[in-house]
């Protein structure tokens, strides 16, 4: 289309397409900026994240909050994630125990777990254990220290 002063004027469709393309370029830039912004701010969140999973270095000695069953002979027996925290996800189960001990709710959580415990157990213990994890995988003794936060009996 040519206007009176002989400059080329794009038709409406073309003008709309140009505007849409410019908006898409701008939106893309905003999206990329948003995606990398958590890394610049060093602030993890959702849905935008720094994705710090397993990013930290780690020594061979680690502490774990554990929930173990105790049998009538005094032996310890591990419990499933569903018994511990009613979940199939071990990340959630571990976080459940960590949070409980951090809040000083070990005894309360101990009683909850005792209510879900399988047969053959006489007590539940919530403890923090330090292990040499690499030694454990090599089949060697790994437990370095154990601190029991709570113990609760299971009533039959």
């Amino acid at each position: 289309m040519i206007s009176d002063n002989s400059t080329i004027v794009p038709p409406d469709g073309q003008r709309n397409a140009t505007r849409a393309a410019a908006l898409r370029r701008l939106a893309t830039l905003i999206l990329v900026a948003a995606l990398i912004s958590p890394a610049l701010r060093n602030e993890d969140g959702i849905p935008l994240s720094t994705y710090p999973m397993y990013a930290a270095t780690r020594g061979n000695v680690s502490s774990y909050v554990t929930a173990l069953g105790v049998t009538d002979t005094g032996a310890n027996r591990t419990l499933s994630t569903s018994t511990i925290a009613e979940t199939m996800d071990w990340l959630i189960a571990q976080s459940f125990l960590n949070d409980a001990v951090a809040r000083g709710e070990g005894a309360q959580v101990c009683r909850q777990i005792a209510g879900r415990a399988p047969e053959g157990l006489t007590a539940i213990e919530i403890a923090t254990e330090r292990h040499d994890t690499v030694a454990r995988l090599r089949g060697e003794e790994s437990l370095l220290h154990r601190n029991v936060h709570a113990r609760c009996e299971i009533r039959s």
Binding site: S62, Y64, T78, L79, T81, W90, A93, T133, V134, L137
Partner: peptide, 18 residues
């Protein structure tokens, strides 16, 4: 680092009865 991450995860699974 990777050795310790692998060992950490495996020990966690042991202690969670998995």
């Amino acid at each position: 680092t990777l050795t310790n991450h692998i060992a950490y995860s495996a020990t966690r699974m042991d202690l969670l009865g998995e």
